[in-house]
């Protein structure tokens, strides 16, 4: 059972998160006699804190340790235990010497690579894909977007009322003539940013026109023939021809199957990795003997 539980750790290491091993190795004068006992004493925590804050200064570390809230302390202990356990596992698995488990795993990997993508993608079947998609629909939300062009009346060199008057007058003219979308650049003043806005989100439009105008634009009905407005931005007054106004939506799985599959695979790897670690840690008997404010404890930890 022990061996069985331990194998996923190799996967975990292979999955690229095993660097915790580095920080899990701490200065211990005397290791726990029982390899399945993790003793969290003052020395261990002090050393651990120094690696964590990347400052090798015992006084500072001591201050830091004493200043932790209960929650923070618990988190520190959890982190320490996790790393200590993983480190011991790594040593036990013989990562530092040749052993059969690693040989076997390397062979498996190589076989896997040669089998290619088809095999790899088989990891997520259609049902799993659907489950993942349903559970994570929020990640695939397509933001609302609009496509529009605009004619600008600046207010840097004239009062805003005058710009409004000019815009109102122009609006009548444009709609009488039926000025098409493509001819917009021939009219009005120079705007700081763009003339045409193609498939732009509310946030983007707001960054160029301000929030009130963006809101107004996103409430317009699309119409290829009608100029609408005027609208106020911080820079002046605008007439708008809006041709697309797509509300935000949750797309179907079929539209983005490739992306969802990739994400699901990543998620699956993450989940299994975490599950494996939880299993491993669960197989240990963790005894926390650190007590705050008890410096003497450092000399003689209990539960050895």
């Amino acid at each position: 059972m022990k061996r069985f539980l331990k194998e996923p750790l190799l996967h975990f290491l292979a999955a690229g998160l095993g660097l915790f091993v580095l920080f899990g190795v701490v200065n211990r004068d005397e290791p726990d006699a029982d390899p399945n006992v993790v003793t969290v004493d003052r020395d261990a925590l002090l050393t651990f804190v120094q690696y964590r804050i990347k400052a090798f200064n015992p006084t500072l570390a001591e201050e830091k340790l004493n200043s932790l809230s209960d929650d923070e302390l618990q988190r520190l202990i959890d982190d320490y235990v996790r790393e200590e356990v993983l480190h011991r596992e790594a040593l036990q698995l013989g990562l530092d010497e040749d052993d059969y488990v690693i040989r076997r795993r390397l062979v498996q990997k190589l076989e896997f690579i040669t089998e290619g993508f088809a095999e790899a993608s088989a990891g997520v079947d259609q049902a799993a894909l659907r489950r993942y998609f349903d559970a994570n629909k929020g990640d695939y939300y397509v933001e609302p977007f609009v496509t529009f062009t605009h004619i600008f009346f600046e207010t840097e060199n004239r009062p805003r009322e005058k710009a409004h008057e000019a815009a109102e007058k122009k609006l009548v003219e444009l709609n009488r003539k039926g000025l098409p979308f493509a001819d917009a650049p021939q009219h009005g003043d120079r705007f700081l940013y763009h003339v045409n806005y193609v498939e732009r989100t509310p946030e983007y439009v707001a960054s160029h026109f301000g929030v009130p105008m963006a809101k107004a634009v996103f409430e317009l009905e699309p119409n290829d023939f009608i100029w609408q407005g005027p609208f106020d931005s911080p820079y002046g007054v605008h007439l708008v021809m809006l041709t697309t106004n797509e509300p935000g939506r949750e797309p179907d799985l079929s539209e983005l199957e490739g992306r969802v599959r990739e994400d699901a695979q990543r998620a699956m790897i993450r989940e299994e990795t975490e599950a494996a670690i939880t299993d491993i840690v669960g197989s240990y008997d963790v005894r926390v003997v650190y007590e705050r404010g008890n410096a003497a404890e450092a000399d003689g930890p209990v539960n050895r």
Binding site: A14, A15, A122, Q265, M268
Partner: peptide, 10 residues
Amino acid sequence: MKQLPVGPIA
């Protein structure tokens, strides 16, 4: 325990 499907290279 299920085998993880892929390592980093895969």
